[in-house]
Design a protein around this nucleic acid. Structure first.
Lengths: 259, 259
DNA sequence: CGATACATTGAACCGGCTCAACCTGCGTGG
DNA sequence: CCACGCAGGTTGAGCCGGTTCAATGTATCG
């Protein structure tokens, strides 16, 4: 049987094709891309101006994608990686029983698609949770460019190397509380790294998604968050979070994050 | 308090320094390395002879290491990756409570150290479970070489990309049976890929290590294995395994492995 | 305002962990 | 060569965290 899709607007994959609107805005491309995580990281790793120019010629700005639109789907031929420029992208797999498994949430500044390289096809789905802007990099072309630019190659190596460790974080047998704390602290730090407030932020994903990611029941997520609030660790209203007692939350998360 | 070490021969890290015996056998290096997974993979990806020569100049043969010797330790400066040529290497971390967390078991043909690139230090320990032979590749040098050899760069990308997905396999939401089945099927396939028997093999790791890796109690591992035997899935005596009903074991593992 | 999806809360259940005891194979030394 | 010691492995009993199931609450949107 073919995989059933959730009802709603027909979900298309927007990734493989290039948005025409995007290619038109080359006037803004450079200024835009200065805010693009990929370029920034490359810059900070000592890449020179002309190299950066090469990168900018390569990049395609994709978006905006709206909540529920797919960036790519499991099984799509792998053509490109992408840096999230705005919004949140969720990656997930669906097993043959139709059960979803959330692999990760990707915030501005983070790169998706790296786990597709070895199989030539995307091993997972990527879907926008809110309004998402992307920088798309053709992988063959960025790999070729990396031949000439040691810093770019190094940056790609580092990105992938980093992702190897991340996946195993929540697979550990830590308590529900610890994993939730680690999840929130992780979000907080990643947001802070991109200039957002580390204490107040929005959960762009549903409780169900969080539960799935942390491998818990949604009910557990609810209960843990409520207890956190009662214990004065945070305020949470709907999807708006304010971390009140950061040190104590970090202490809880320590068991998972090891840092 | 400093981390306590198991008693026995003083455990040294053998990785950072170069075994003198190794550098001497350059006569054998080429023939040796033909059996080295890394070279083979590169060959199969279309790398030409002269490129392979460059790789051979780069490689250092390390070993034999004996059970209990460390290849590298958490926190060691990252200098090199290594392909396992013979034996089994276990990677693990130790949290501040002294609890060990097994990250993986690495069989001949597999590469360790890739998760160290982004941090400049090894994020985990690597220890020989039996007699281990390694091919060591200085990372700066292999990265430089990858600038000239697109196939090598591509191979490195693929290796890392592959490792991104592996870690999240043994999550909590699969049953103990399924995880054990997946573990055994995984071993079987990886061994088969290197020419060993997929039906009969040795568990080079202790029950405790398996339990730790699968995030279960050692008692659970015992019970599951015994039940597998009673159900006619396999024979197991000590650490010798013979898979009897491969299809049924694979069916069990399917929930975890998705293939 | 009703419909719908998401979120919360309560009660019961269960898989796997903990704790404790026992067994087994193997190396060691008398 | 056997007795002993010990690490690793097995087995049993009880318990607990988190899931499951079911019901109720709440935001959002046509």
């Amino acid at each position: 049987m073919s995989p059933s899709r959730p009802p709603g607007p027909p979900a298309r994959t927007v990734f493989p094709r290039t948005s025409p609107a995007v290619l038109a805005d080359d006037g803004d491309a450079l200024t835009f891309c200065t805010t693009c995580a990929f370029s920034q990281a490359c810059l900070s790793e000592g890449m020179d101006k002309s190299a950066l120019m090469d990168l900018h010629v390569l990049v395609e700005h994709v978006g905006p994608l709206h909540a529920g639109e797919h960036v790519f789907r499991e099984g799509d031929p792998f053509t490109a990686i992408a840096a999230v420029r705005a919004g949140t992208v969720k990656t997930y797999q669906v097993d043959r029983n139709g059960h979803e498994q959330v692999l990760g949430f990707h915030l501005p500044g983070e790169v998706i698609g790296l786990n597709a390289i070895h199989g030539d096809r995307y091993p997972c789905n990527a879907i926008a949770l809110d309004t998402v802007m992307l920088c798309r990099f053709s992988f063959p072309r960025i790999a070729t460019l990396a031949q000439r630019l040691p810093n770019l190659q190094q940056h790609l190596f580092r990105l992938m190397s980093h992702d190897i460790g991340v996946a195993s974080l929540f697979a550990r047998d830590n308590s529900a509380d610890e994993r939730m704390a680690a999840f929130l602290i992780g979000l907080s730090r990643r947001l802070a790294a991109r200039g957002f407030s580390p204490r107040r932020f929005q959960l762009t994903m549903s409780r169900t998604d969080i539960a799935n990611y942390l491998r818990q029941a949604p009910e557990t997520v609810s209960r843990v968050l409520r207890r956190f609030e009662q214990d004065g660790l945070l305020h949470i209203k709907q999807r708006d979070v304010e971390i009140v007692d950061l040190p104590r939350l970090e202490a809880l998360a320590l068991a998972v994050l090891r840092s």
